[in-house]
Every structure is written in structure tokens, then in C-alpha cells.
Design a protein around this nucleic acid. Structure first.
Lengths: 237, 237
DNA sequence: GGGTGAAACCAATGAACGATTGGTTTCATT
DNA sequence: AATGAAACCAATCGTTCATTGGTTTCACCC
């Protein structure tokens, strides 16, 4: 499998130089408030390289999710905006936590499946990092945030814009209301450890490029959340 | 309370005349497919009235919900576009037919599952009616419309607002572009018969309240559509 | 052969301009 | 008080042109 490993240190020196230079521009944050990078032609001139080399480097950064590009518009650092807020706000009133969880149960296993088919080695590494952060989180609230980031990353890696938008819609509806309080109860230390194990299982399946297993593991995870949400709401009701 | 009643018959004769004239234009449906009415200035000229009178009449119709207006755009009959349409229009540019079909393949089997669990006898009857209409349709275009109505009905019966919105989003994106032409090819008479049989299978599973079977039948149906879409696009490319 | 640089072209986007359209005010008339 | 007329404001659309990412081609070099 050694021949498949896309190690950066194996890259040609010129490609490496350009890639590092652009990486530095992004990480140092010296760019406009909207995150816009110089144009490909400007970068090529500044770095004294060809435009093709610049594009190869940008392709890589885009695959890593560090930048997004749009023809005729430009190249930007960060994630592309998803204008779902207005729609989420409108339908939030007739969505309850249970139906939101039901929707997650429909969509996220499918996203895990797609994710397993399309994830690169770097993508898997990023997912593991997020799972680790979720595990190491001090309090229940920050664990919730890292958990959300993990699920969102899976949705993004799945690489289908419509499905990502659907996921974002559910996510924003969940955030919009005060359901946070209710979910808080479902985050006991024992359960958190259980969730972490389920995350591992999901990521392992993605790493093995086993879409069916990934979907199954995700479904199992969400079923657990569903059960605990139900218990939490019964206890409150 | 008599002094507060805004009875139309009490209106000044000129206002009444203009209002009725515009009402007639709308009710007779003799206007473009997008429902656009003539401009206020045109209406004033045609009806030989002042623009202020026309505006008073339009104010009334807008209050009644028969029309909606937007500065700089125009006056339209019917309901203003809802946020789902707007969102669909925004993301339509970076969605291709294949990824849209991929998204359908993720969402619609889940909808069929929910539908099987929640459909009433009347719901099933409605679905059978729609399948029959699809079968009896004269030309390929009207079959396409009835087919869309059938899938939409399943999404609605599923009874989950978030999932319905996700479905509508995909549906709007599909309608928005000129993908219609491409789909046209995938509607040969033999295929239509095949699709009809698949519809039957889906509805039978829903009727039997067998969610798993309904999801499987729906997945099979969409896989068929997917294959034919691929062939159609290869043939074109 | 594969990476590189250069050039040219395509397609999508945005800024700018003018024309159009609904929104508003004012004034004279009836 | 309602109407008609006119003028102006603000938002939108269509057009044009420059810009930008996407793509192809070619020559060069290791």
C-alpha cells in the first residue's frame, strides 16, 4: 500500500514550495475579512510559479476543506456559506425534537455511506481528530459542540451539496430552539463514553471504505440518541 | 358597527369599476405563465383610470392574498415564492443531475418508510389514484407531472416537516433547470410500463404497512431512474 | 512519462449603467 | 373626499464589460 500513500514530503519540491507558501498565507490570516485569497494569476506571479502549480496546490487545500472556490467569484478561506438560516427559522416552529431526530435518522446514515465512499486519508484523520476532541472535552457543553462538528464534517465529506444543505437545515433548526437544555440531560459521563465508542465505530467503517457498515454504525448511534431523548422528554413531561 | 363595514358596494363607482376589471383579468387567467400582471401604468392606461385608482384596487387584492407585489419587479397573481424556492434557486447552480439523483436515493426510500408507517387508507387510495393517472397519461410530459405528484404525495404523507422540506428542495432544484429535456429521453414507452410496475410495488408495500419493503421498492425504482439518467447523459456527452 | 510554465480559450460571476417597475409625495381638479 | 396627473425615490432586471476560476493545448525539461 506504500505506493498509494499521498505523503506531502514525497511531492516534487516546487509543488511543495507553492503549497506551503499558500498554507502560510491562510494560517497567518493576513487576508480580507471575507477570507478572499489573491487570484490564481496573482498568486502565480507573487510566488514566481506557473498557474498550473498554483491550481494543484489549491486543489489540495480545497480537498482538505481549508478553502472553497467558485468560478467567476474567487478563492476563499474557510467553509462555503449555506444560506439555510431563513428557511430554518420559518419551519422551526412546526418541528419538534422527536421529528428532528427522526429526520437525522433518515439523512445521516446516508451521509455516512457517501462519506465512506469518498473520504480521503486526510479526511479520516480529520474525523479522528474531531472524535478525540469530543472525547477530551471538559464539560458536556463543549462535548456537544465537538460532536456537532464531527457530524458536520461527515456531512461535508459526503460531497453532495443537496444532502449537505438538508443536513444544515436540520442542524440549524436544532440549534435555533432551546432544545439545548433538553439535550443536556442526555449527556451523562457514562453515556458520553458510549457515544465516543460509537463514533469510533463509525469512523472505523469510513476508514475501511465500508459504506454499509458506516451507515449502520451511524444509525445505531442515532438510535441511542433517540432513545435517550425520549427518556429525557418523558421524565420532563 | 355599520360604519366600519368596508362593503364593496359602498365604494365609489370608479374604484369599483377598476377593481372589478382587474379581478376579471386575474380570474380569467389570461396572463403569462409566471402570473405577471400588466404594470400599474399599463393598467391605468388600459382602464382609462389614474394610477392612484389602480393602486388602491391592487392594495385591496394584495390584502386579500390574490396577488403579491415587489418593487422593481412587478405584480403577480397567486402566492409569493416561499423560502424553499429561494434556497433552491441559490444552490441550484452547483448541483448537477447526478448528484440530485444521488440525494433522492438517500431521502426518498426513507420517506417511503415513514409513509408506510403513517399512511391512512385514504392516503393509500390517493396514491393509487396518482399512479393510475401516471399510467394513463397520454404523453411523456404529463406522465412526468403525475409521477412528480406521486412522489410528492409520498413525501407529504411521511409526515415529517424537515424531510418534506428536504424533498421539496431537491424537487425545486430539479424543476428549476432545464434538466427536463434530459429526462425526456428516459421516458420511452417500455420504460414507462416498467416504472408503473415499480410504482405499484411501492404502493403495495405502503398499503401493507411494510416500511422496509416500501423503502426497498423505492430504492429499486430510483436506481432504475439513476441508470437511465446515466445512460442518457453518456449518450449526450 | 510526468511535472512545469506559458498561453489561449470557456464559463460563471460581479460591477456599472440604463430602463423598468412598484412605492410615495405633491398638487390641481372635480 | 376622491380622482387624475406628474414627479421623484428605491428596488429590480437586462445588458455590457472586466474579472476569475476551469480547461485545454503546447513546448520544455528533468
Amino acid at each position: 500500500m506504500l505506493h498509494e500513500r499521498p505523503k506531502e514530503s514525497q511531492d516534487p519540491p516546487e509543488a511543495r514550495r507553492v503549497l506551503d507558501a499558500i498554507r502560510q498565507i491562510i494560517s497567518e490570516g493576513r487576508l480580507p475579512s471575507d477570507g478572499r485569497l489573491p487570484t490564481e494569476r496573482q498568486l502565480a506571479a507573487e510566488l514566481e510559479a506557473g498557474r498550473a502549480s498554483v491550481r494543484r496546490a489549491l486543489d489540495r487545500l480545497e480537498a482538505e476543506g481549508l478553502i472553497w472556490r467558485k468560478q467567476g467569484k474567487g478563492t476563499f478561506a474557510g467553509q462555503p456559506p449555506d444560506p439555510t438560516e431563513e428557511l430554518a427559522a420559518q419551519i422551526a416552529s412546526d418541528v419538534d425534537p422527536l421529528s428532528a431526530m427522526e429526520a437525522r435518522l433518515c439523512i445521516e446514515p446516508a451521509l455516512a455511506d457517501l462519506c465512506a465512499r469518498r473520504a480521503t486519508a486526510e479526511d479520516v484523520a480529520r474525523l479522528r481528530k474531531l472524535a478525540e476532541r469530543t472525547h477530551d472535552a471538559d464539560d458536556s457543553d463543549s462535548a456537544e459542540l465537538w460532536d456537532g462538528a464531527l457530524h458536520r464534517a461527515i456531512a461535508r465529506i459526503a460531497g453532495n451539496r443537496l444532502m449537505l444543505t438538508a443536513f444544515t437545515l436540520i442542524d440549524e433548526v436544532r440549534m435555533g430552539d432551546d432544545w439545548q437544555k433538553k439535550r443536556h440531560r442526555a449527556r451523562t459521563p457514562e453515556l458520553r463514553a458510549f457515544y465516543d465508542a460509537q463514533h469510533q465505530k463509525i469512523i472505523d467503517a469510513i476508514d475501511a471504505r465500508d459504506g454499509t457498515a458506516a451507515a449502520g454504525a451511524m444509525r445505531e448511534h442515532l438510535e441511542t440518541l433517540f432513545d435517550n431523548l425520549r427518556k429525557s422528554m418523558e421524565g420532563r413531561a
